[in-house]
Amino acid sequence: MQWSPDVRQRYLDSRHALREEVDALAPRAAEDPDQHLAELVRLHRVLTIRSAGYWENRTHLFADQVRSLFDDGVSLARRLSQHDPAEGTRTLAAILIDRSTFHTATSEFKPALEDFRQALSYLGEANQPLRRPLPPA
C-alpha cells in the first residue's frame, strides 16, 4: 500500500462507516437472510480487512483488535454456507483463508493450518496431493 498518507488514512478511516453499515444490516440479515445475509458477509469482510490494515502497524494491539472480527466473519460465513450452500461454501473458504492468514501473522500456526485445511476441504481440494511434501513440523 504505497499510498499517500492522506489517501491511506481516508481508506482506513472508512472502517467507521463500514461498522455502522454492518451493525445496521445485521438485524435485517437475521430477519431475511435471502435478501441480506450475503451482503452482510461481504461488508463484514471489507470491514475486517480494513481494520487489519489499520492495526497492522500497531503490533502490540493488532491481535486483540481484529481477532473478533475474523472470528465473527467465519461465523457469518458459516451461516451463509448453511443458508445458501452454492454461494456460501466458497465464501466460507475465502474467509477461512483470511483468518488463516491472520493466525499466521500472529504466529498461531496450528490454528492457521486448521483453518487452511478446512478451507481446502470446502473447495474440494483437501484430498489432492501436494506438489512438494512439507517438511516435518
Rank of each mutant, 00 (worst) to 15 (best):
Q2H: 12
Q2L: 13
W3V: 11
W3K: 14
S4N: 10
D6R: 11
D6V: 15
V7K: 12
R8C: 01
Q9T: 15
Q9F: 13
Y11A: 06
L12E: 14
L12D: 09
L12N: 07
D13I: 10
R15G: 02
R15E: 09
A17F: 09
L18A: 05
L18W: 08
R19S: 13
E20L: 11
E21S: 07
E21W: 07
E21C: 04
V22Q: 04
A24Y: 05
L25K: 07
L25S: 01
L25C: 02
L25A: 01
P27Q: 00
P27S: 01
P27W: 06
P27Y: 04
R28V: 07
A29T: 08
E31N: 05
E31M: 06
E31F: 08
D34T: 13
Q35G: 02
H36N: 09
H36V: 03
H36D: 06
H36S: 01
H36K: 02
L37W: 04
L37P: 02
E39K: 10
V41W: 01
V41D: 00
V41I: 03
V41Q: 00
V41H: 00
R42S: 03
R42P: 02
R42G: 00
L43G: 00
L43M: 04
L43P: 05
H44A: 02
H44N: 08
H44K: 03
R45N: 09
R45W: 08
V46D: 04
V46A: 01
V46T: 13
V46W: 04
L47Y: 04
T48W: 01
R50D: 08
S51A: 05
A52G: 13
A52V: 13
G53S: 09
G53M: 07
G53A: 08
Y54I: 09
Y54Q: 08
W55A: 01
E56M: 10
E56T: 12
N57I: 10
R58S: 11
T59S: 04
T59R: 10
L61K: 08
A63I: 10
Q65R: 13
V66N: 03
R67D: 15
L69A: 01
D71I: 11
D72F: 01
G73R: 03
V74A: 00
V74I: 14
S75L: 13
S75I: 07
A77K: 01
R79Q: 11
R79S: 03
L80F: 04
H83N: 00
D84P: 00
A86C: 03
A86N: 06
T89P: 00
T89E: 11
A93I: 10
I95W: 05
L96P: 10
L96I: 12
I97A: 08
D98S: 11
R99T: 15
F102G: 09
F102P: 14
H103I: 11
T104M: 11
A105R: 15
A105F: 13
A105D: 15
T106M: 04
T106H: 05
E108K: 13
F109G: 02
F109V: 11
K110R: 15
K110Y: 15
L113M: 11
L113F: 13
E114Q: 14
F116W: 13
F116I: 14
Q118G: 09
Y122V: 06
L123C: 05
G124S: 07
E125S: 07
N127A: 11
N127K: 12
L134A: 14
L134G: 03
P135E: 09
P136C: 03
